[in-house]
Design a protein around this nucleic acid. Structure first.
Lengths: 159, 159
DNA sequence: CATTGACCTAAAGTTTACTTGAGCTTTTAC
DNA sequence: GTAAAAGCTCAAGTAAACTTTAGGTCAATG
């Protein structure tokens, strides 16, 4: 039959280790990105005699979590920091996952709230004629009170 | 008296033109950013005999609008494109503003909706034990601009 | 009139998250 | 047994949105 049997000759067991190409195919993460994540310490691998990477299957779970976190807008550095809080750098178990995802949900909530506030202000300003921007709440997204100093300080750095 | 009277000797009228430093101070946008915006065509100025920039006051309004749009996550290129739809590159009047802000609000709405969906999925997955990531909805957020390459093979197509 | 402080330009640097390319080795397939 | 596919490393490129640096000019002030 000559089936494709990559990443070692161990057989088709579930515990089979994965080559970088297999991980890429199964995770949807490019090989170059896998190299990159490894260089950043987000995932890890060991090497074969021929210096090729081999991954444990749980790298797929780790990648799944990384993707979810990225979708919520968490930067890689923070994702790494979160993963680093796990003992032995192990892949999160159920409890870890609950903790991580709860934390990330807070971030999401905060960002949703911020965008919602902004949208509401925008809503209130459409066609309101405050275009003079003298007192428009949009100018000051941080909900800051008026500035002092010489003359009006319109736009503030950012929220 | 000897009041600070910059950017020309035209007097204190409201129509006074502004130097780059004054615009920076009043808008909260760094001088370097003003140069940058100008190079990108988002704002404009004329020059004095000594080659210094002078701005009309409505540059402040334009900057306000740019900031609002940026806060909603619109990239500069798109902001420019939107501003470019205005005749004569004029600063938006009330009607223009209504159109632009309505458009941007849609973007905001969409992003809020996306984040909310993500949060809800995350919520549903906290502690749900789907950590195996076999079928977890989080793995494949429907809103993702589909992965490129040969068909998004998300995690675990086999076993 | 001389000294600052504000400006000017052009180019290079910064950050995030990767991708691309070059040049070389290992594995797999026929 | 050999060629193609898959891997490897390291360096450089990409994109967005600016900032920083360097080197020089202009202008307000004592």
């Amino acid at each position: 039959m000559a089936m494709k049997q990559r990443a070692g000759t161990v057989g088709g067991g579930l515990g089979r280790e994965l080559s970088v190409g297999e991980v890429a195919e199964r995770s949807g993460v490019a090989v170059s990105a896998l190299h990159f994540y490894e260089s950043k310490g987000l995932i890890s691998s060991w090497r074969t005699g021929g210096n090729q990477r081999r991954y444990a299957r749980d790298v797929l779970r780790r990648l799944g979590i990384i993707k979810v976190a990225q979708n919520t807008g968490i930067p890689l550095a923070e994702i790494k920091a979160a993963l680093d809080t796990l003992p032995d750098g192990r892949t999160p178990n159920k409890k870890d996952w609950a903790r991580l995802s709860a934390r990330w949900r807070e971030d999401l909530d905060a960002r949703i709230a911020q965008l919602t506030r902004l949208r509401d202000r925008l809503e209130g300003c459409i066609g309101c004629g405050c275009l003079s921007m003298e007192n428009c709440p949009l100018r000051n997204p941080g909900d800051q009170a008026g500035e002092h100093g010489s003359g009006p300080r319109y736009l503030e750095p950012q929220s």
